[in-house]
Design a binder for these strands. Sequence first.
DNA 1: CGGCAAATTGAGCATTGTCAATGTCTGTGG
DNA 2: CCACAGACATTGACAATGCTCAATTTGCCG
Lengths: 255, 255
Amino acid sequence: MPKPNPPVLEAMLRTLERRAILDESDKAAFLQLPLRLQTLEANVYILREGDRPDRSCVLVSGYAVRHKVTESGERQIVSVHIAGDFLDLDGALLNIADHNLQTLTRSDLAFIPRSAVRELIVSHPRVGMAMWVDTLIDSSIFREWVMNVGRRDGRARIAHLLCEFARRLDVAGLPIDGGYQLPMTQEQLADATGLTPVHVNRVLKALTSEGLIRRTKRIVTIPDWERLRSVAGFNETYLHLDQVARGMREDRSLV
Amino acid sequence: MPKPNPPVLEAMLRTLERRAILDESDKAAFLQLPLRLQTLEANVYILREGDRPDRSCVLVSGYAVRHKVTESGERQIVSVHIAGDFLDLDGALLNIADHNLQTLTRSDLAFIPRSAVRELIVSHPRVGMAMWVDTLIDSSIFREWVMNVGRRDGRARIAHLLCEFARRLDVAGLPIDGGYQLPMTQEQLADATGLTPVHVNRVLKALTSEGLIRRTKRIVTIPDWERLRSVAGFNETYLHLDQVARGMREDRSLV
DNA sequence: CGGCAAATTGAGCATTGTCAATGTCTGTGG
DNA sequence: CCACAGACATTGACAATGCTCAATTTGCCG
């Protein structure tokens, strides 16, 4: 009998339980996934494009990004992850990594062997379905980012990123009292928004001087949510926060 | 005993079989999914943002796009789909549509009830895993699009779109003898690349005059793949075409 | 042969990028 | 406790990629 893991997967299990109805066996199987815990420093690569991963991982604490690099060397951050995110489920199901995964801050990670994830999916399909929903929400966020970068100007792009981050931290129960720690340099913000660091600086300055945000070091405060939301054109549907409530009801009735 | 479906799911099953090992029961269950077939005209909405879908669908023939619209009314196409694509598996697992789905050409669609998909996932988890892989590849394509729109100039963006399309049609076994039908207007190309129709026109003209592509109506020919690939910075890793070969071996050994 | 949608083209403009200098903050070693 | 290094942030001047507006042409269809 494998020994129970330290409570690193509990938070994730609570999320999954909202995505599908899990019985005791499902929960136990999930909690008994074999883990290897590891603490990584800031700016360390977890995975590189082209790797053939043999594991996938959960971000237990800290922040991380996924990014890609064009042939000509330009970097684009394609997603930002916070504590509790299942990073890289791709690693369990796809053969070759199509992007890099890098810590933003010092982070704790739980690595899970690829085979263990695949076995769990087959033996406990409801857990698989719940994790699948998670990856579909990631997908939805990618789609929003395509639109953010493709169809909004610099000002709205950055405002949107700030709104998304605030909302996600809030839902994850991470501390936000009107403000939050944004663990990204302006260069990284530029890589996430498809702008240059110089322009990011100017936009942040403008947003600040208009009173849309306040900044002290890297703590961002949003004095008037509705105003910033409106500048960003932020509509949280794409975060699928509703997967909680209606998901519960539906799972009970349908499967 | 449900009667067998017309051979609309066969092509998709062949794809799924390459993604995971399926036994006879898996295949039968997939082929017996209840379908409603429907032919839609060009430019018809299949699904709208905000809908609560009760079905998901497969594109049997034709072309379709997913798109989103900003608060200020700008449209962004976030993906283009070809015959054989499982459109909108989201519809089976997410509660609210976060994007629109629209035909580009007259298309045949097979609609599958949400509940049937969910039941299949739970009763035949290997089929679910194979479909999941499909959605992860979609995800990977979204990530590439974020980079395309965020970090490449107009010229490279359009070249990249043309390369991706050529490659996907080729793999899907759709006819390409050096050239293919691109069923999009320049306005739609603009919506897919985050540019304006006017600029798309100029870029196409430039690519044409440089001999990188040839155009007759909407048939695009690529006289020198390597040159266009290089302009685009196109690297097909993100399409995960390898999911075939190594996927087979791995599935056999691991699960 | 109209009627329309789509494609082209031109002229002027603006958002954003480039280049380069300077300021600020933080941690470290002396 | 101070000086310094290095990373990050900020600013200015100028350039350019891509946008806007508007007109014209082309292709397709009944």
